[in-house]
Design a protein around this nucleic acid. Structure first.
Lengths: 213, 213
DNA sequence: CATATCACATACCGATCAGTAGCGGATACT
DNA sequence: AGTATCCGCTACTGATCGGTATGTGATATG
């Protein structure tokens, strides 16, 4: 705990971030007022302004926390590249992780917000660059395990995968009536198709295939 | 002109819708106030409440007008399926229509809004079903022209194409720094890959291929 | 245990919000 | 041209906004 900061503050900050996450997902960023956030957190405006200069700063803090959690999650599933490999082969049809509704909504909110604020957009872009890099590594590894090599830069592949996944997420959220499993399956098949189409069997894989004959 | 309605009203409505379109794209739906819309339109709040009961109603009217315009556009490019056919072949690399920034932003805003209002979501879904049906027809036609037939329902293909396109649009808007042409190219290549992967040469095409030999 | 600082609550500010009522110029029909 | 109706504007209410100033209980330190 930093000098001169009591253990009460991080608890308060956490409560505010939790409340904001819920409300931004429910109502959107622009439609959520600061007093509302405070009320949800069981605090008052004074607590808010004691911790953040304004709503934008809270939004950034919220994103930062979410990104950290997400990074942890990504690193945790990284070793489980086997599943991704089977996905690259188009063999795995199990529904992917259910879309995190709250996160997807807030993330879309943030994208819209960032598009209008170049400074914020720069932040978002730098984060996405990191994510795409990690994802590219994951993809390359998964392809390699199924004896394939990408025919385009792995980061381009990551871009496409992110695009189709995000687009599918939007559809899934909008069309809640549509069978979520069907939607997820469609998304997975699209990803698998892209991975296959922009890769080819590696030379090593071909050799071992020859050896097998 | 309907009985008892002067020709002034549609002009006023149009001005309000134009102003709202601009402001929703610039600031978002929740962050845009009614007086702001009126000021941008060169009118006052009285004019607004004389034409719409509230902001939601104006949003719906705006979407309706945009959808009509979009339907006209889609029907106009429908006959130009040749380009789509070359795209399906992966031969056409020219950048697609530049992303309509305003429309994309407002459309995202609306999706987010709709997700939170089931009644509005139903409206959005019914519209998207129509769009996907038209797009599916366009895709099927394009594939046919290049002697191919889809191996999955054409509407599923339409879903994937919409997903990857929307996802790419978001990336393009967020990362304004990234070369827009590169981004559009990536999107086109992904679409082409999906179209190829989920279709095969048709029997007829095979026959004519045999004849050619 | 005393005291200084911290961290949140209360109260309040000016500005702005959504929505309403009535007025008066513009429009359309005879 | 006269007249009824339309329709946008002005002026207003009550509520809520973001942000600030000040008060007070909790906490860490010596």
């Amino acid at each position: 705990m930093p000098r001169g900061i009591t253990k009460r503050r991080p608890v308060t900050v956490g409560a505010l971030l939790d409340a904001a996450m819920e409300l931004f997902a429910e109502q959107g960023y622009g439609a959520t007022s600061i007093p509302e956030i405070c009320a949800r957190a069981g605090l008052t405006k004074g607590a808010f302004y004691s911790n953040f200069p304004n709503k934008d700063a809270l939004f950034l803090a919220l994103l930062d926390r979410s990104w950290q959690r997400r990074a942890e999650w990504l690193r945790r599933v990284m070793p489980a590249g086997e599943a991704a490999a089977r996905l690259a082969d188009g063999e795995d049809r199990r529904p992917a992780l259910a879309v995190d509704r709250q996160w997807t909504l807030v993330s879309m909110e943030f994208s819209l917000h960032a598009i209008r604020r170049p400074a914020v957009a720069a932040l978002l872009v730098s984060h996405e660059v990191r994510v795409r890099a990690e994802l590219a590594a994951l993809i390359a590894e998964a392809l390699e395990r199924s004896g394939r090599v990408p025919t385009v830069p792995a980061v381009d592949l990551a871009r496409m995968v992110v695009a189709v996944t995000e687009g599918a997420d939007i559809q899934a959220l909008t069309d809640a009536a549509a069978d979520a499993v069907v939607q997820a399956d469609l998304s997975q098949r699209a990803v698998a198709a892209l991975l296959r189409h922009f890769s080819r069997r590696s030379a090593q894989a071909n050799e071992s295939a020859h050896e097998q004959r």
